[in-house]
């Protein structure tokens, strides 16, 4: 199997793993697991009072998703830029090698 085919198949597999629960589990909002843990603390340790709160109170889900997007964008930019540099160098060296050969 060609390497690129394998990569595409692997990425497709990731998508499938993420999408299957969405299709098969009804009546769920897919809230964060940390929220579920908060509830669990409420049941196993009902007297516990959280003693600190987050520094900032985000106005709502939209702002939060914006910030998560920014995080992903910063990471993806670096990752893509790095790969771009490596791939460019790889081809340059390959071309140079062919010319001298």
């Amino acid at each position: 199997m060609k390497k690129s085919t394998l990569v595409i198949l692997l990425l497709l597999l990731c998508v499938v793993i993420a999408v299957v629960p969405l299709l098969t589990i009804q009546n769920s909002e897919f809230g964060g697991a940390d929220g579920a843990a908060e509830e669990a603390i409420g049941t196993v340790d009902p007297d516990y009072e959280p003693w600190a709160e987050s520094l900032i109170e985000l106005p709502g889900g939209e702002t939060e998703s914006l910030l998560f997007c920014v995080q992903t964008a910063i990471g993806a930019l670096l990752l893509g830029g790095g790969f771009g540099y490596y791939i460019g160098r790889y081809h340059k060296e390959k071309d140079a090698g062919e010319k001298t050969a």
Partner: peptide
């Protein structure tokens, strides 16, 4: 060093992806 920045960026991206899972919640 660029490679080091890239592995940091990889963690940055992946930890921002909240993916739905079989338990009906996301992580």
């Amino acid at each position: 060093i660029l490679l080091l920045a890239m592995v940091g960026a990889f963690a940055f991206v992946l930890s921002a992806l909240k993916i739905p899972s079989v338990t009906g919640s996301s992580s």
